[in-house]
């Protein structure tokens, strides 16, 4: 589904991602782990078109998409959440989710101003669908709330609902469990499994090792922008370099 070849991105003197290559197969849960500053978010920003690669290639279903604008990539079936929340605080919670469904709606300004019967019916259907998504991710009780009224944990899920509203083929989640308590993390675990079971390919960045080891089909370990190791949970866990660089440190916490 997605293939990364020798991807590099530098910021001034810092090489945030360096010569990274890997493949993500359709229908799997693929995790990217590594210490803070390892380049995970930068990798996501490159894949989703928010950053231009310095060099290397990104192939989505065989087509080179490196540096293409994010809205085009969204139309090709990519969707994501953000480590630092990107919620529209000037809108209601439900409207935020409906923004995710934008691509499937009549996008015209004039159509919006005319608001003819057809658009009204589509809006009703879209709202109902998005309410269901809010229920699905567990924020159904905030349907009538403004986004600014939601607690942090709910906002994290609201982002997932918004990403799902796009009906993506490839969903990238950047630390969905960060800042959540134990119960909430377990709920996210179940949620990601449900999403994957519905046929969505998931790429996950997460620090919670239990969550990662539990749900990933494949794990990529980054360290200082470089690929340190790759494989199944068992393979990665057994890799001495990974233990030294990352898991050992994490276990010591």
């Amino acid at each position: 589904m997605l293939e990364i070849r020798n991807l590099t991105r530098t910021f001034g003197g810092v090489t945030a991602v360096q010569e990274v290559s890997f493949r993500i197969r359709a229908g799997t849960i693929h995790s990217v782990i590594g210490p803070n500053g390892a380049g995970k978010t930068t990798l996501f920003n490159l894949i989703t078109g928010l950053y231009q690669p310095s060099s290397g290639q990104i192939l989505l279903e065989g087509e080179s998409i490196g540096g293409h604008p994010p809205d085009e990539l969204a139309r090709r079936g990519m969707s994501r959440t953000f480590q630092n929340l990107q919620i529209c605080m000037n809108m209601s919670a439900l409207e935020n989710v409906m923004v995710g469904a934008h691509m499937r709606q009549n996008q015209g300004l004039l159509a919006g101003m005319a608001r003819l019967g057809k658009l009204v019916r589509a809006e009703r259907a879209c709202a109902a669908e998005c309410v269901e998504l809010m229920n699905f991710v567990g924020v159904g009780r905030y349907v009538d709330a403004d986004a600014s009224q939601l607690p942090y944990g709910a906002l994290k899920r609201l982002e997932i609902a918004r990403a799902l509203a796009a009906k993506p083929k490839l969903l990238l989640l950047d630390e969905p469990a960060a800042g959540l308590n134990h119960t909430e993390t377990q709920e996210i675990d179940v949620l990601i499994k449900k999403v994957a079971a519905a046929g969505v390919t998931v790429v996950l960045v997460e620090h919670d090792m239990k969550l990662v080891m539990n749900i990933s089909d494949h794990i990529l370990v980054l360290n200082y922008g470089k690929k340190l190791a790759e494989g199944t949970a068992q393979e990665v866990r057994a890799n001495p370099e990974v233990i030294a660089a990352y898991l050992g440190g994490a276990a010591a916490h």
């Binding site: 994010p70 969204a74 969707s79 919620i87 923004v99």
Partner: peptide, 12 residues
């Protein structure tokens, strides 16, 4: 207006 990157990755 509220979150431009979020709008972009939503296909806007």
């Amino acid at each position: 207006h509220g979150a431009e990157v979020a709008a972009k990755v939503a296909g806007i």
